[in-house]
Design a protein around this nucleic acid. Structure first.
Lengths: 237, 237
DNA sequence: CACCATTTGTTGAACATTCATTCAGTATGG
DNA sequence: CCATACTGAATGAATGTTCAACAAATGGTG
């Protein structure tokens, strides 16, 4: 099962396109960019707007201004505002998906390493930052009332969840734990999402470091034989 | 510290008012209701709209229609749409707050019972249902870009968090655990929020029961001496 | 290479719609 | 009969979409 997970090839391509977007900062005007680059540029501007103004205040004009282009341009590249937002969500979903698949691939064959890699990947700067988290949260707020968003809006999809369950089951066998893999996987992935939520609320008392620390603490108590606690031993009352 | 937490008296009053709202279903028109009842009625209609249509699609007209009243009514009782939404958020915040305070009060003096009561309270039908969760999520999506929402939007506030930390610290002493109370409390409360998020996404694979089960599983592995696992003992490989 | 025709990307003003707000008028309870 | 709750049409601002005109690339032809 796990052997079928490979980093997505398209991720590399998109990375290169994003580079083009950043490079062309100075030369936004005129017909300098390819269709794909321009679309990515608009998607990035959309994420900016979602992060800065929230979903309900994100306007076509703001996206166009953010990209340094004219008003009508979005309707040319994307058919409508709705299609732009769907494309933006799909982009973030693909990026997140490629990120954890890559982390899993690089983790090697040990299940404990794999689980730890997945957890750590969630708090990597490239995807876990104010801008992206805020954009995710904006979509979450609308997901329940929009069928189109529902499938994409929880970045951690069914495949991700299945892998979590499999890893929990494997560790249970090798560590003689008592929990139910499915239940433990739910608790774990829910905590990761909850930590994301905390981070985006951004009350400054939760940072990427403390969030990661909490996640690792969870791993230590749930799988003590695989992740021995790094803190001092048990204290007597 | 914990001894100062008491159920809020105002909760009882509001419950009575809500009763009035429900009773007057048939007689919405005319000057039948007091000012407070009418405001609660509008707030309930706002929650309905948020749940059904999401934040960005919630309109004054929809709220008024939902309450069976005329268009201009909201601006009469609340000054503006923004004030209505703030009042709605405040209402949900107060309700949630009263709920966990009451649960804590009824739990008695044992810290383990208290923590368990807080966790269970989160999944009580009265506050953990599609309608309310969807409304919470709608506000979360806008909170980061609206300073006014920020304080109220995470129902679990600083006081709640402090109590969690205190309980974790107490249990650590009596159970000789190795974790850092602050870190464990963060992991725990983040998981609760994450489970809420799952429930409101409503992909049907997570129910209130399985969510509560996952939360209890967490308690079992984090505080094994206080919450002995109910599943069969450890299995050998 | 030069020239022109065609396709394709881009602009910005005009348009239509949606929606919060206002307010003059009406109804109702005390 | 007065104060107050309430109504609903009018208003104006905000915003997504359309489109005619323009500009840049492309490709074919002599």
């Amino acid at each position: 099962m796990l052997e079928t997970i490979r980093p997505m090839k398209t991720a590399v391509v998109k990375e290169a396109l994003l580079e083009s977007v950043r490079k062309s900062e100075a030369e936004k005007r005129g017909r300098k960019a390819s269709k794909e680059v321009r679309q990515l540029q608009l998607i990035e501007a959309t994420i900016d707007s979602l992060a800065k103004r929230g979903y309900s205040e994100t306007t076509m004009a703001d996206v166009a201004d953010g990209a340094g282009l004219s008003r009508g341009i979005v309707n040319f590249h994307f058919e409508s505002k709705e299609k732009l937002l769907i494309a933006t969500l799909q982009h973030m979903y693909d990026e997140y998906s490629a990120h954890w698949r890559n982390a899993l691939y690089k983790a090697g064959d040990d299940p404990a390493d794999q689980l730890h890699a997945l957890v750590s990947a969630d708090f990597d700067r490239s995807i876990c930052n104010k801008r992206k988290l805020a954009a995710w949260c904006a979509f979450w707020g609308e997901a329940k009332s929009r069928p189109t968003y529902q499938a994409l809006s929880s970045a951690r999809d069914a495949v991700y969840q299945t892998i979590f369950i499999d890893l929990c089951a494997t560790l249970k066998l090798s560590g003689s734990y008592a929990y139910e893999p499915q239940v433990m996987a739910l608790a774990l992935s829910a905590m990761l999402e909850g930590l994301w939520l905390r981070l985006m609320m951004g009350t400054e008392d939760t940072t990427r470091e403390t969030a990661l620390q909490a996640a690792n603490e969870f791993l230590s108590v749930a799988f003590p034989k695989h992740y021995p606690s790094k803190a001092g031993g048990a204290t007597k009352p």
